[in-house]
Design a protein around this nucleic acid. Structure first.
Lengths: 348, 348
DNA sequence: TTGTACGCGTTATCAA
DNA sequence: TTGATAACGCGTACAA
């Protein structure tokens, strides 16, 4: 590991070989118009012949500018974040920035490590969907002049922009929908309260549930072992036998919801009418499931684009902006199949 | 964008504030045992107070070492690569390396850009699943001493290690299976031949097909518009009416296969017996589909880990290694439901 | 144990 | 138009 010593060719080598000064050689790359055509061609040929590649670190050191931003996301394997990432990447690319991505897996320790590494790398900005309350660390980092954009979070004492999707509203939509189709109990599969999305969606769900005339006592939550398919499956599996009739299920994200479906299925036959299920995110795959899933749609790709945009185009006078996007209920078969159909009409 | 000038505190500031020399301050961070306990504590406090963060670029420049590797993958949104990425990341983390990830989307131009940027960033190594023949560029890069690990590819004239999964064998497994369950025609949904995986899987499929006693004339391919769900759907949709009876379907990856399923479904009812379907990869989701999919399993996570391992632990005498992993046929309902069942028994 | 001074590869400034 | 030279922030001989 590590490159062979002495192998690397620097701008000094180029200059020497081309019989010009380093300054001129540098100008050929950065301000070509300032150097005579002949000289330029000569230098360019040498660059080609020697296979010279400018050193990013040296450039960064000298100019303080490194066209790179870092993103630390909750779970890079979740299609939701993959999609967000793509949005970020596409927007950054337009300005010729690169992206560092890290996945915190919901672990603050891991997240902290990433943030520190990113700062020391000298990234031009950071995008973060926090796994917990990072306000202290973020305040420090922001204080040192690093622009920060928060995804689905916002700390009053941290000078950072945010892209928010109203999670409370989303939770509310889900709960109301379940109430409207006749559920009398609501069970939410949720992640730790320290994750803002989890907290807010639950709060919204409770509000929506009560708002629809249900009692708080009929609302309950289970804590997931992990916020993915396996987590949904494992957590849900042992639960079904004890569930009261007319229980609606609400999963904090689609992956979990798919896991819950899987658990139901393994239990032998899955009748969506018996356990109406609402997911969250509207990832691509929800529509190809056997029972396409009702879910709360988020404008995934846009979240990423807006975040990158906020980072790239900060208004000098008011660098802190807040963008709030709106979630949307998408009704599919997991909450609409009627009770006496024990299987979907068109499976796949 | 970009940090405020003059704001950044350097090791000089720390030294001055602590009343020591820069050398000592530096030693506190890098060789703490060499500095007296008192001095060390004093310096550490100043570091804390000033919020000093060492400059990565400066370190990299000085030491030539940047604990970062870059990966350029075919499609970061494909769960297959997400899983590979995770394998890479986990292994790297054990040695405290970070990862740059880029998605080429199968476009050589995009890939080239990434490779160049990565090299100029001075990464300690690169992991690449090539979108096309990059041997020229790679030979140059490797020639400059950058260790390279190829995923699912290997160029005779490029000094790089490889992690391969035998795609020919995988294609063969798929075709033989389809032949064995009685298919008399084989239609493969494939990506461009320039992508090694596509080429090899098709070659293997043809070999398996012929090996199972079928004629070459009954084997055909369609070129996908894109290698994802949408691509499978769009490409497959207009095809079904003209397909001969007993046609087996083989998709170059699971995402495409899911798209094909979707197309079949939209066409009105999907009878797997009429169009047996085999995917490739065995991503997580294949098992939660309405009709769980027969597929060729690859040791995804391991591919990533092994690649990172190859990069980190290069044998001095023989830095080029080749690891070949073996794919495996996983039979599920998309090729086993018998012909008179017009729907799966346990939809979900 | 601590301090000094140099060099890593660039870019920017200023003279020539 | 080109050349010489001083930074950028850090690590590390080497000297003290």
């Amino acid at each position: 590991m590590g490159r062979q010593p002495g192998t690397r060719v620097s701008i000094v080598d180029v200059a020497r070989e081309a019989g010009v000064s380093v300054g001129t050689a540098s100008n050929v790359l950065n301000k070509p118009e300032r150097v005579a055509k002949n000289t330029r061609r000569r230098v360019e040929q040498v660059i080609e012949r020697l296979g010279y590649v400018p050193s990013g670190p040296a450039r960064a050191l000298r100019s303080g500018q490194i066209r790179t931003v870092g993103a630390v996301l909750l779970d890079i394997r979740n299609p939701f974040y993959t999609q967000v990432t793509r949005g970020i990447e596409d927007r950054l690319e337009e300005d010729e920035f690169m992206l560092f991505v890290g996945s915190s897996d919901g672990k603050m320790e891991r997240e902290t490590r990433y943030l520190n590494v990113l700062e020391s790398r000298g990234v031009a900005g950071m995008i973060l969907s926090p796994a917990g309350d990072q306000s202290k660390l973020l305040r420090d980092i922001a204080g040192r002049g690093v622009p920060i954009v928060l995804l689905e979070a916002s700390y009053p004492d941290v000078p950072a922009s945010s892209v928010l999707v109203d999670n409370v509203a989303g939770g509310e939509l889900a709960a109301r929908h379940l109430a409207e189709i006749g559920c009398e109990h609501l069970l939410m599969f949720n992640g730790p309260n320290s994750i803002p999305q989890c907290h807010d969606r639950a709060a919204g769900a409770l509000r929506g549930w009560v708002g629809a005339g249900r009692s708080e006592a009929t609302f309950s939550q289970v804590l997931l072992t992990s916020m993915d398919i396996a987590g949904g499956d494992d957590t849900a599996a042992p639960l079904f036998d004890d569930l009261p009739a007319k229980t609606g299920l609400f999963a904090v994200n689609d992956l979990v919801a798919i896991g819950v479906q899987r658990a139901l299925r393994k239990r032998g036959g899955y009748n969506p009418a018996a356990f109406p299920l609402v997911g969250y995110d509207d990832i691509d795959l929800t529509s190809v499931l056997a029972v396409p899933m009702t879910t709360i749609r988020q404008p995934t790709y846009d979240i990423g684009r807006r975040a990158a945009e906020l980072l790239l185009h900060r208004h000098a006078h008011d660098p802190i902006e807040r963008v709030t996007l709106v979630p949307e209920l998408v009704v599919r078969e997991s909450t609409t199949l009627n009770a006496n159909a024990d299987r979907p009409k068109n499976p796949v």
